[in-house]
Each structure stands twice: as structure tokens, then as C-alpha cells.
Design a protein around this nucleic acid. Sequence first.
DNA 1: CTAAGTTTAATGCACGTGCAACTATTGTAA
DNA 2: TTACAATAGTTGCACGTGCATTAAACTTAG
Lengths: 149, 149
Amino acid sequence: MRQSRLTLDEYLPYLVNRVGVALALEFSRQALARYRLSIEMWRVLVVLSANGGQRQVDLGGLTSIDASTLSRMVTRLARLGFVARRRSTTDNREVEVALTAKGRTALHRLIPIARRYEELAAASITPAELDAVKRALRVMYRNLTPPAR
Amino acid sequence: MRQSRLTLDEYLPYLVNRVGVALALEFSRQALARYRLSIEMWRVLVVLSANGGQRQVDLGGLTSIDASTLSRMVTRLARLGFVARRRSTTDNREVEVALTAKGRTALHRLIPIARRYEELAAASITPAELDAVKRALRVMYRNLTPPAR
DNA sequence: CTAAGTTTAATGCACGTGCAACTATTGTAA
DNA sequence: TTACAATAGTTGCACGTGCATTAAACTTAG
């Protein structure tokens, strides 16, 4: 009873996940749906945009998506024309995944919308405070994913 | 190119979701797995613990879980013995879901572990800063879920 | 009081996911 | 070189999820 009661409104994982879900859901329904993209697909495209072409295994590391899931997701993304697969010339096991022109175009249209949702969430929060929150979130992630991996 | 490039390390949804996933994953594998509980099930149990017995529809609202998914989840939770279903006496459509003694016992053991993961994430963050982060997260959630609903 | 509309929960169905195999390729030790 | 281990990617399988639909109970307008 005493210490083993959880006040949801003070419980960090609850607060974090609630915002994450709300953020993803709105963006997904308002913007991603038109492109037949899921939030997970969107994250993959963003990582490709930010970091350039990647092997699937590295994409998995950057997005925390299982390799098998990613394999099928890339198949779907390729069928939609947003990415292209290309076997590595140096290692025949590896598959390089890269954005296509169509993928880049879609991202150029989606990213400003994503930014607007970010601003909507951060409304009435000062830039300094927002920076502090982002810094704290980065620290938290580091604390939760120690040396291993 | 210019404004339409997304720096992941500054992109709020990315930072938020990353922490949320890391938080949930560790706790799930280290603690929940022994009870055959998923994170979603855990969230339902926590809500039941914090707010008392609930109708399924209200549980869905508090956890953002689809009604159909919740229906089946409660079936599983009941089969595991953590909750009990009871048809409402005032309205025969409604189903009241409440924790069983076994459910309360499991929660009493899980909550301290959940707290430890929260502390692990917040390590090296001052209490004042952590409070500011929580406050900001609550504001963000409100900003994203306006009057509607 | 009846008929239409609303609410709550459950179910059919298609689909995406994770885990565990499995194949193919590359790396390493003898 | 040969045998064994490690890595990259794919696929079979079971399962949980969301959407659309349905059934039942309640509410409201006429």
C-alpha cells in the first residue's frame, strides 16, 4: 500500500510514452496516411535521410527495429518506390538501402509537417526549457543503454 | 535541403520515443516476463491499481488502447488470474474490470522494480530538473490532445 | 410506448511483428 | 586449404493489433 502505489501523473515512463504515442498518432493520421506510410516506415526514411544509405543491419540498430521486420519493411518501402535495395559490391551478404528521388520528395514534404507537430507539442514551453527537456531525454537514453550494445 | 533536413538528435518525437522504448523494453524483459505480462498489460494493471475498477471503455481511454484489443487483453489477464470481469449491476452492457488479489500481489512486487528503472533513467538529473521535465511532458500531452475527446 | 439512435463489448479478418530457423557469404584458426 | 565460427538477410510461424462489423442493452425523440 505505502510505497508500492504508483501515481501515474508522476510516473516518468507513463508521461514519456503518452507524449510519444500522441505525437506519433496525430502525425500518422494527418500526414503519413496519404503516403501509405506507417510511423515505423517514417522513422526508417528519416534515418536514411539523416545518415545516408545504410545496410539493413545498421538501420535496425539506429531504429531499434528487428532485422526480420526491417527486411519486410524495406520490401514494402521499395514496392512503394521510396527506397531502393542494392547488393553491396564488397560484401555479397550486405544490402545497401538508399532513398530514391521519390523518397526524398516525400520527405521534403513531410518534414515541415513533422516540425509543426513538434512545435504544437512544445507550445507554451520556452526555448530554454525545451532545450533542457531534450538534454534530459538524451541523458536518460544514455542511462538506459549502457556500454553494452 | 536547408530547412527540410531533420537532425534526429534535436527532433523531439525521436528523443521521446527512444526513451519510451528503452524504458519499456528493459522493464519488460527483466521483470514483466516472469509474470507473462506485456508492457500493455502492465499499463492496464497500473491504471487499475491507481484508479480502481474500471469499465473497459474507460480503461481504453486511460491507456489509449483500442476497445477490441482491450477486450481480448482483459480475457488474457483474467485467464492469468490478475483481473476479474464482472457485469455491471446497473447497466448490463458494461463490464467492470478489477484487480484480483493475485493481481495486487504482482503489482506490489513489480512497482518497486518499475521505480528502480525510473531512477536509473533519471540518474545524474537533479530532482528540480526532473520535475521540470515531467511538467513539460504533461504540458505537451495537453497540447496534443485538445478539447476534443 | 414504440422506433431510431447511441453506447459497450465481442468477434472476423487482414496485417505487421518478433522469435527461431535457415541460406548464403565472409572471417578465422588449424 | 579446409573446417568451423560469425555475420547479413530472408522466411515460416504464432500471435497481438486495429478496423469494420455485429449483438445486446440502454437512451431519447416522437
